[in-house]
Amino acid sequence: MKDWLFPSFAFIIFLYGMSFVIYVYSNYSPNIGIFSHSTKDVKYNDISSFLRDVSESFK
């Protein structure tokens, strides 16, 4: 009994944790910016323009 009790308990905790992460991500992700002190709000259509702007912000 001891061989399956701890893995089962750990898996249940893992499932609850993942469901919490998915819940938080689905409800709060549109309101969370990448940079919290950003002065401009930009919508990116492709990853290359996003990466270019990020690299320019670190220069």
Rank of each mutant, 00 (worst) to 15 (best):
M1Y: 13
K2F: 06
K2Q: 05
W4I: 15
L5Q: 14
L5H: 12
P7F: 05
P7W: 06
P7I: 04
S8T: 15
F9R: 15
F9L: 15
F9Q: 15
A10N: 07
A10L: 12
A10Q: 11
I12C: 10
I12P: 02
I12T: 12
I13A: 09
F14S: 04
G17T: 12
M18W: 13
M18L: 12
M18P: 00
S19G: 03
F20N: 00
I22Y: 09
I22S: 12
Y23N: 03
V24K: 02
Y25L: 05
Y25E: 07
S26Y: 00
N27K: 03
S29M: 05
S29F: 06
P30Q: 03
I32G: 00
I32Y: 07
I32R: 08
I32H: 05
G33T: 09
G33P: 01
I34C: 00
F35T: 02
S36G: 00
S36D: 08
S36Q: 11
T39D: 06
D41T: 07
D41Y: 07
V42D: 02
V42F: 04
N45P: 02
N45W: 01
N45M: 00
N45H: 06
D46R: 09
D46I: 04
I47A: 09
I47M: 11
D53G: 04
D53W: 06
D53C: 03
V54R: 03
V54G: 03
V54L: 07
S55W: 00
E56N: 13
E56S: 06
E56F: 02
S57P: 00
F58K: 05
F58D: 09
K59L: 05
K59Q: 12
